[in-house]
């Protein structure tokens, strides 16, 4: 058994001070093994995005311990152990698609010659090879997100963090993108932490769904998704899939009304 890629014990986060204090997370215990695809799901304000950002050292925990890839989150960030994809593609609109993918490679001092090749490789991986010279405003939302994913994987991190990446896309594009992400996960072997508030999405993508309850955010349930690793359209019609969706939905309801949980 390899070491877990994320290990959280008793993690809590409080924003602000005095009157404006907000407790976003409380007592989070979570373990993510290498190669896992874990979804964090919960209602607005349950702290799932905060938890993702704690893992990425974009925010620091107030209590508890958090180990990412065997190190402190700050060190993991300095070592470039993870890539992140946000809900908005956040592409730089003065750079073309290829240059956008090269951005992390520039900052991480990859040799000049290697950058264009690596970038084009990643664009081929997300099937946007022909768009290297295009600019972000020329691409659709789904395509922009694919560029963002290519960028996040360009430096082959061990971990991929995704914060509701498909939230702004329409349903059909969303399903296609979900298929894409599963394919990339299988091909690259990256561990994934995926924040969403779509129950079908969480079940379809993950090996495990972590259900969170509203503020202060706690983990109210964890549901193993025992669907086969290769998933496609047929999976969406599999009875076991529907059962799991119902299970997650009920877990969410329980979490919201305060029953169960740690």
């Amino acid at each position: 058994m390899s070491a877990p890629v994320v290990e959280a014990r008793g993690v809590g986060k409080v924003f602000g001070t005095g009157d404006a204090e907000t407790e976003a997370l409380r007592g989070i215990d979570l373990e993510i093994a290498a190669g896992d695809f874990v979804s964090l799901i919960g209602p607005s304000g349950c702290g799932k995005s905060t938890l993702l950002r704690l893992i990425g050292d974009l925010v620091s925990p107030t209590t508890g311990s958090l180990v990412v890839n065997g190190k402190a989150p700050g060190q993991a960030r300095l070592d470039r152990d993870y890539g992140i994809v946000f809900q908005s593609a956040t592409l730089l609109d003065w750079r073309n698609v290829q240059k956008n993918v090269e951005l992390p490679l520039e900052i991480m001092d990859f040799p000049d010659a290697e950058r264009p090749t690596r970038a084009r490789e990643m664009l081929d991986l997300v099937q946007l090879g022909g768009f290297a010279d295009h600019y972000p405003w020329q691409l659709s939302g789904g395509m922009q997100q694919r560029v963002a994913i290519a960028r996040a994987l360009a430096f082959r991190p061990a971990l991929l963090l995704m914060d509701e990446p498909f939230g702004a896309l329409d349903e059909m594009t969303r399903e296609a993108m979900q298929q894409e992400v599963l394919r990339l996960w299988a091909e690259t072997g990256t561990s994934v932490v995926f924040v969403t508030h779509s129950i079908p999405e969480a079940v379809f993508l993950s090996t495990r769904v972590v259900v969170m309850s509203p503020r202060p955010g706690r983990i109210s349930d964890e549901i193993m998704v025992d669907l086969p690793p290769r998933r496609d359209l047929d999976t969406r019609e599999d009875p076991r899939y529907f059962e799991l969706v119902i299970e997650v939905r009920e877990a969410l309801r329980r979490g919201e009304s305060g029953i169960g949980g740690s």
Binding site: R53, L58, T90, L92, P104
Partner: peptide, 22 residues
Amino acid sequence: HPTSMELMRSYASTPREVLWKL
């Protein structure tokens, strides 16, 4: 946008890199 700043932070960018690249 704040997310662009978060992106740069996720790359462990130096303040100078954030200034000139973003």
